[in-house]
Design a protein around this nucleic acid. Structure first.
Lengths: 197, 197
DNA sequence: GAGCGCCGAGCAAGCGTTTGGGTACCATGC
DNA sequence: GCATGGTACCCAAACGCTTGCTCGGCGCTC
């Protein structure tokens, strides 16, 4: 393990957060996973929240970085790319996802995590811009409520990450494919061939 | 107030559960909302969990009752009906929804809430049956993964309920309509008119 | 000997819950 | 009219436990 001890501890804590959420996980459980006593954690972190912050901030910068190099000129391709980039990113950040879902109220209420709200807003803007542009280009239905659609999409997109790994035996790619087909074409059968590809 | 005091307390607790989740809500907060001391709650309930159980069981019987009178012969109409029935039901059970989302691990781990797993499984069967039948009838795409689709749909369907009321200024009907359009037709624009209706 | 990593023990606060008692109300029987 | 008992509801205080966190000290390595 070439990484520093602190990084390792964050990783261990992340696995617990990913399954139980932030608040539901105790510092003693984290310490147990590391094979040390709970008090010894405070040699590395000044609080439990800093562990959470380390996980959340890394996730946010990562997902925003993945958004930066999408080609906004083709909204449909961009959406697909963003979706696929997201799932790839989200797989590496299951802890952050679970925390944002289960403990959002807890974090967003604290001034310390103000950057959290800002980053989430930035993410929302990327999606809405793409959806709106797709509407203008005629690629997407003109009556689409961009913000509403984003909220629905985001939550679906994030949801499978929180499903226990291997629960349904789905690979991440299967979920993305199923999701994208649902997103672009719905569940209704086409009267000829499929629209996609 | 014709209803009994106990019912009123469950309702008050439910409002707190709907916003903070079950575990994150303390019995003292519930008591404060009722204007009494925390210990006085135990004159009506033998534990905090029985309050949660009262909310959850009522929800489950309610949603399952809404499923019973759908016409399974027309899967597409049935799905739409189930979706609309769900949103109507879910609006009246925001507390149960939040609890199932945020505290599912907590409840499902306890043998006391075994009926919870069973009821959820029953709900899943209704959906899967409809989706599979729609596939056979040619109404839905034949390559649809019924179980995966159900999981995605359920989570989307439940999600808006947990959005703080009036957050985006959406009425429940707007959310359902947006959801149904997304579900049947996707976001892609049709080359003629819309498929729906 | 300096610094990193951890132990051992404990603290204050918060949690769900228990206990014993008190108050108001209402019906009953004399 | 008035004591009697029962019921519904709540208070005040505490209990045992868990929580996040503190702090002095010990061992190890470079």
């Amino acid at each position: 393990m070439s990484t520093t001890r602190k990084t390792h501890l964050v990783h261990l804590a992340g696995e617990l957060f990913a399954e139980k959420g932030f608040r539901a996980t105790t510092v003693r459980e984290i310490a147990d996973a590391a094979g040390i006593l709970s008090g010894s954690l405070y040699h590395h972190f000044d609080s439990k929240e800093s562990i959470g912050e380390a996980i959340l901030s890394e996730f946010l910068t990562d997902v925003l970085a993945g958004y930066r190099d999408v080609d906004a000129d083709d909204p449909r391709a961009a959406i697909e790319k963003v979706v696929r980039a997201s799932t790839a990113t989200l797989g590496r950040h299951r802890a952050a996802l679970t925390m944002l879902q289960r403990d959002w109220n807890y974090f967003s209420a604290q001034p310390r995590f103000a950057y959290l709200r800002e980053a989430m807003h930035e993410i929302e803007q990327v999606w809405i811009t793409l959806l709106e542009r797709g509407k203008r280009d005629g690629q997407f239905r003109p009556d689409l409520d961009a913000k509403l659609t984003y909220r629905l999409l985001r939550d679906v997109l994030w949801m499978p990450t929180s499903w226990r790994q291997g629960e349904g035996g789905w690979q991440p790619e299967e979920v993305v494919d199923g999701f994208l087909r649902l997103l672009f074409d719905g569940i209704t059968a086409r009267n000829g061939s499929t629209t996609r590809n």
